[in-house]
């Protein structure tokens, strides 16, 4: 009997790609539940549309590229992309908006680069930015938090709205939606209001957007769980949130009436999602711990800059993509000192 030569090691640890991806989805479940409670069924419809589209596009492209379909689908990466995008999109988005975003994320940002592992950009954020640039109107039409909505839609009604655009008689889109806190802040600062005036408005809560602070809290919870399960390390989220808080504090101290404080920035928009779920995407991020600190810090600063002086209310997606571009260079300059090589 002659056995094939198999290289060591002969044993393997418990980790696998599918497991990593699934944990990311699990970690988002509390936040998704929070979104349903706060913004209604829209997020569930988004998820349904996004996941279906992602699996279909991924399978179709794998077939075109003659790659194993079932095995690859089971890596879970299409699922994660779909879920992240669905959570990031406005809860009352029409189906085609979600589908176009997923199409771009899966096909253009991932498969055309050679599939999972070869994509230089975070696919979900690439899809998100494409939508933001192409459909700014639809993208800023956010569902109003429960307390501010007049009338509630059931799951079927939301689904119908997503597919056909139809609303039950007597309900208007205006009644269901509102601008986000970040959006409002930006617009009203432009109209020479002060931060404290603006934050007296109904869509603001204790530190951030009303309700958003709870969703962001739940995202933080999920992120901490990922840390605990060692799916991610602390470097990226700490650097993103730390640098964002630092720079926000700095400007807030300079002029509190012009610049919102650090808590507002942490608790609004996509900061938490970006820090724990998007910037931690291994494929498009930096790899070494030092590199991840640089990556995260750069991202935090960019988020603030774009939010404060850029043309869009939130800067998370742009910040991620910009740092993705810088990741190879960061990796190159933050290589660890190899055993037996001189320090410095």
């Amino acid at each position: 009997m002659t056995n094939p030569v198999i290289s060591s090691p002969h044993v393997h640890g418990p980790a696998n790609v599918s497991g990593v991806m699934l944990r990311v989805v699990y970690a988002l479940l509390p936040a998704i539940a929070g979104c349903v409670w706060l913004f209604g069924w829209g997020v569930v419809v988004n998820l349904l549309v996004a996941i279906t589209a992602a699996l279909v596009f991924e399978a179709a492209f794998l077939a075109l590229r003659r790659r194993p379909i079932i095995i690859t689908l089971r890596d879970g990466s299409a699922l994660v992309t779909a879920v992240l995008l669905a959570v990031a999109l406005p809860p009352l988005a029409p189906w085609w908006l979600v589908t176009v975003g997923v199409l771009f994320a899966i096909v253009f940002a991932k498969q055309l680069y050679g599939g999972l592992g070869f994509n230089p950009f975070n696919p979900a954020m690439a899809g998100y930015v494409l939508l933001l640039v192409s459909f700014p109107q639809e993208m800023t039409n956010w569902a109003a938090p429960a307390a501010l909505r007049s009338g509630d839609l059931g799951l079927v009604q939301v689904l119908l709205h997503s597919l056909t655009g139809a609303l039950p008689t007597g309900t208007t889109m205006d009644a269901l939606s509102s601008a986000t806190a970040l959006d409002t802040l930006k617009v009203q600062l432009g109209m020479a209001h002060t931060v404290s005036e603006i934050r007296g408005g109904p869509i603001f809560g204790l530190f951030g957007g009303r309700g958003w602070e709870i969703v962001n809290g739940l995202i933080l919870l999920g992120g901490l769980w990922l840390l605990w399960r060692r799916v991610i390390t602390w470097h990226v989220p700490a650097a993103v949130l730390g640098s964002l808080a630092l720079i926000a504090t700095l400007f807030h101290l300079i002029n509190p009436e012009l610049y919102a404080g650090p808590l507002f920035h942490l608790a609004s928009g996509g900061a938490m999602l970006g820090a724990f779920f998007i910037a931690t995407d291994p494929v498009s991020g930096a790899t070494s711990p030092r590199g991840q600190l640089v990556f995260g810090a750069g991202m935090g600063v960019l988020i603030y800059v774009i939010r404060t002086w850029g043309g869009f209310p939130d800067g998370v997606a742009f910040a991620v993509l910009l740092m993705n571009m810088a990741a190879p260079a960061i990796d190159y300059y933050t290589q660890p000192r190899v055993y037996g090589h001189n320090r410095g």
Binding site: H10, V11, H12, G13, P14, A15, N16, V17, S18, V20, I71, D75, S77, G114, G115, L116, G117, F118, P282, V283, G285, T287, S288
Partner: peptide, 15 residues
């Protein structure tokens, strides 16, 4: 005793 042995995939640069 080999432990988990799923399919070989692309490197996801997880570090």
């Amino acid at each position: 005793e080999f432990g988990q042995h799923g399919p070989v995939r692309n490197c996801i640069r997880c570090g």
